[in-house]
């Protein structure tokens, strides 16, 4: 028995993927004025958690790494010969949420460029969708971890 994702993703890539996700969660939460309020930035070595500009840059860098890994896996998956593995329901939901986060995250980055303009309503909607999708994905990931749900159905090989 072998998972399909295992044939596409190396252990090292999985580790980089997990680290980038952890950094995205941390730098994403650090975009909110919480770490200073709740003394976290006063823990020795965590002063940077209250630096909005630093965390903004960190979020961009971690997002670039995540995009690289995800698109590498996606390209390999699409080029895999049929029969292709099938996504589980849990995997489909998480993939959908990832897609939503990536799209809205990219739009947020574009919005931050001086020459691109998004209306106030669009700006707020993009940010709220990004936040909501991140929150739901977090819950889904926890559920999947404890309920041992995988992204792909196991295939006999």
């Amino acid at each position: 028995m072998k998972t399909v994702s295992g044939s596409i993703a190396s252990q090292r890539e999985k580790l980089v993927f997990k680290i980038s996700i952890a950094l995205l969660i941390l730098s994403g939460l650090a975009q909110m004025p919480l770490f200073k309020r709740y003394y976290i930035s006063e823990i020795p070595g965590l002063g940077w958690t209250a630096d909005y500009h630093f965390n903004h840059v960190l979020h961009y860098l971690a997002a670039a790494v995540l995009l690289f890994i995800i698109f590498k896996w996606a390209a390999a998956f699409v080029r895999t010969k049929k029969p292709r593995p099938q996504l589980t329901i849990s995997g489909s939901i998480r993939m959908g949420l990832f897609s939503l986060i990536i799209i809205t995250g990219f739009l947020r980055a574009v919005k931050n460029l001086q020459d691109f303009y998004f209306s106030p309503a669009a700006t707020t909607a993009i940010i709220w969708i990004h936040l909501a999708a991140g929150l739901i994905l977090g819950f889904m990931a926890m559920y999947s971890l404890f309920a041992r749900k995988r992204y792909f159905k196991l295939s006999q090989q």
Binding site: H53, H56, V57, Y60, L61, A63, A64, V65, L67, F68, I69, I70, F71, K72, W73, A74, A75, A76, R79, T80, F106, A109, V110, N112, L113, Q114
Partner: peptide
């Protein structure tokens, strides 16, 4: 103050392209 993130947007745009290329090459 937005200069760094403006520059980093290029990384975000290039990362998927580089990822696809890496995926195809590794396959």
């Amino acid at each position: 103050t937005m200069a760094r993130s403006e520059a980093l947007t290029a990384f975000l745009a290039l990362a998927p392209v580089a990822g696809i290329a890496a995926g195809l090459l590794s396959l």
